[in-house]
């Protein structure tokens, strides 16, 4: 008996054992209809390169609570690794992934071009903020229900507000030598997008100057938050606001810095695979993730709410009030592979 088989049995037992849930009855009709089909599939697999591990798991749980009998296999990793796994699947001719969520635009557009995506328009997407709706695919091959807000953070006890760097540009000053921590574009799609934007702003020489300050390189964009929490470094570079706010809420002495040359916003698409082994569950998941319930769950982890009917998370500045820079899908698709190689040549890793 396989592990999955056993889990399936357990899930089935749970359904049989449970008293009929009121929740299922309250579903709007389009969800109710999908739910019926999804329940027969019983599970779906989500390659999640968005959110951090804990909110991912919380989303999976909330989904199963809302739709009893449909389990989410949450495979949380960095975006590049998630896509790497998908690429390995494709290479091997195996279908395992239903929904891929990555912070790298090019993943979805590549898959779309290759004809590997299932077009589906979640009804709930109508309730998303307009700029988010527009960031999705007009032909409905992918949708955005997550944006990364990437900025700077400092250790309050090491760097005062007055001394803190005010911009990306300021990071190349010599006084930040051995003070910086940053993720890796080879692992993190968001860091890739950030690198593409900064290359556009200041040219690659910016990174050569940054390298001279010996930043500590992690893998995911969240790594630097941990590094800051530990007191290993004092300035976090291109860290996601959500993880930082979550960390701050736990008592870590950090402050966000919105850089003057632009807070990086990375719209991160999610897509259903054409060969998805659980297409109905996947569609249901897209409905869930564009609906209010999803944002209520992720908001608790300080992720941006992308619906008007769910307020933004505690402690974050409304994006209308800061300068925002956002890459185009084309820039990302062309730029990220380039900056990955450039990065490895410059940073040696």
């Amino acid at each position: 008996m396989t592990g999955v088989g056993r889990r399936g049995l357990l899930a089935a037992a749970a359904i049989i054992g449970a008293t009929p849930r009121a929740g299922a009855a309250e579903l709007p009709p389009h969800e109710q209809e999908l739910y019926g089909a999804a329940r027969r599939e019983g599970e779906m697999t989500w390659y999640a390169g968005q959110l951090s591990a804990e909110p991912c798991e919380a989303v999976g749980k909330a989904f199963t609570e809302r739709y009893p009998g449909v389990k989410v296999n949450v495979v949380r990793s960095t975006s590049q690794v998630a896509f790497q796994r998908l690429a390995q699947d494709m290479r091997a001719g195996i279908a395992q992934c239903d929904v891929l969520s990555s912070t790298d635009y090019s993943h979805s557009s590549f898959l779309k071009r290759e004809g590997r995506l299932l077009a589906y328009r979640p009804k709930n997407a109508d309730g998303l903020l307009e700029f988010v709706r527009k960031a999705g695919d007009p032909e409905d091959h992918f949708h955005v229900f997550y944006i990364g807000v990437h900025l700077l953070a400092r250790r309050n006890d090491r760097v005062s507000e007055a001394d803190a760097p005010k911009s990306w540009k300021a990071l190349t000053e010599a006084r930040w030598r051995d003070q910086l921590a940053v993720g890796h574009p080879g692992y993190s799609g968001a860091i890739g997008a950030w690198a593409v934007l900064l290359r556009k702003l200041y040219g690659w020489d910016y990174f050569k100057a940054l390298e001279k300050n010996r930043p500590q390189i992690g893998r995911s964009s969240i790594d630097p938050v941990t590094t800051l929490n530990a007191g290993e470094r004092s300035i976090g570079v291109a860290i996601p606001s959500a993880s930082t706010l979550l960390s701050m809420s736990r008592g870590n002495p950090l402050s966000l810095i919105y850089p003057e040359d632009g807070t990086v916003v990375v719209p991160s698409p999610s897509c259903i695979q054409k060969n998805a082994p659980h297409p109905n569950a996947a569609k249901l998941f897209m409905e869930f993730a564009t609906g209010p319930e999803y944002f209520r769950v992720t908001r608790a982890f300080f992720n941006e709410s992308l619906r008007a009917d769910v307020p933004p998370p505690e402690g974050s500045r409304p994006l209308e009030q800061v300068k925002v820079i956002m890459p185009t899908p084309e820039e990302i698709e062309k730029g990220v592979p380039e900056v990955k190689e450039q990065w490895r040549d410059t940073f040696g890793i």
Partner: peptide
């Protein structure tokens, strides 16, 4: 490993990517 065949070692490696040392 595939998504449903992750072992403890691989999950631990994935967790190390997420950067949460406590978990």
């Amino acid at each position: 490993v595939g998504p449903r065949t992750r072992t403890m070692a691989v999950l631990l490696y994935d967790l190390s990517e997420a950067g949460n040392f406590e978990v």
